[in-house]
């Protein structure tokens, strides 16, 4: 199991605009652009990027045993076809962004929406970095698969949290309704191909 920390000096603007509903090729107005820039600064100074990951072996029987939990999900089985192992990870952009969202939810709905989008874009960006690092260590797939995709149940989050000691390692909590707090957090599985060892 590994715990890693990261940093960011910018946030993928196109990704944030996409979360805000902008169609490809449409540019925000000057006023929106100025708000985006101001909020980006606040999000970057309040974020705290952390992740935990570990390798598990995959065995196939009546159910698919992923090493940390077993499942009947067809979609994850398909995703993991040809994989003898997987890396499970949890990554977060930190509680500071939730603080900012809580603040602007009370003061300015437009800023709340913008901070929300920038936070999601940052979490995605951080996941890409974690994923790239995993690919540097293992012969890992280029796509990842998260609980809640297709028929892979969200309830598997409970097993993810137990297996990676997510709360203890990176401070992310899981509610009874399976929400993660800080909200800008992601858990995912990355399959490891059998035939390539690194």
């Amino acid at each position: 199991m590994k715990v890693i920390y990261g940093g960011a000096d910018r946030i993928d603007r196109d990704e944030a605009l996409r979360y805000l509903g902008y169609m490809r090729g449409t540019a925000p107005s000057d006023e929106v652009e100025a708000e985006l820039a101001a909020c980006e600064g606040e999000v970057l100074s309040s974020c705290r990027l952390a992740a935990v990951y570990a390798h598990f072996s995959v065995t196939r029987g009546e159910r698919l045993d992923m090493g940390f939990a077993s499942t009947d999900s067809r979609d994850i089985e398909k995703y993991l076809s040809g994989c003898g192992g997987l890396v499970l990870f949890a990554a977060t952009a930190g509680a500071g962004i939730d603080r900012l969202i809580a603040k602007y939810a009370r003061l300015s709905p437009s800023r709340a929406a913008i901070v929300q989008a920038l936070g999601s874009a940052l979490a995605e960006q951080w996941c890409n970095q974690v994923h790239a690092r995993i690919r540097g260590e293992y012969a890992a797939l280029s796509a990842r698969f998260s609980p809640g995709y297709g028929d892979f149940p969200l309830a598997i989050q409970r097993d993810v949290f137990a297996a990676l000691h997510v709360t203890k390692n990176i401070g992310v909590t899981l509610s009874e309704e399976l929400f993660m707090t800080p909200s800008k957090s992601v858990t995912a599985i990355v399959g490891i191909k059998d035939d390539v060892q690194r």
């Binding site: 169609m23 449409t26 107005s29 709905p109 437009s110």
Partner: peptide, 14 residues
């Protein structure tokens, strides 16, 4: 009509 998006809608509202 999708010629203006959420942030501006909200900034106008504010």
């Amino acid at each position: 009509k999708k010629t203006l998006f959420l942030p501006q809608l909200l900034m106008s509202a504010e």
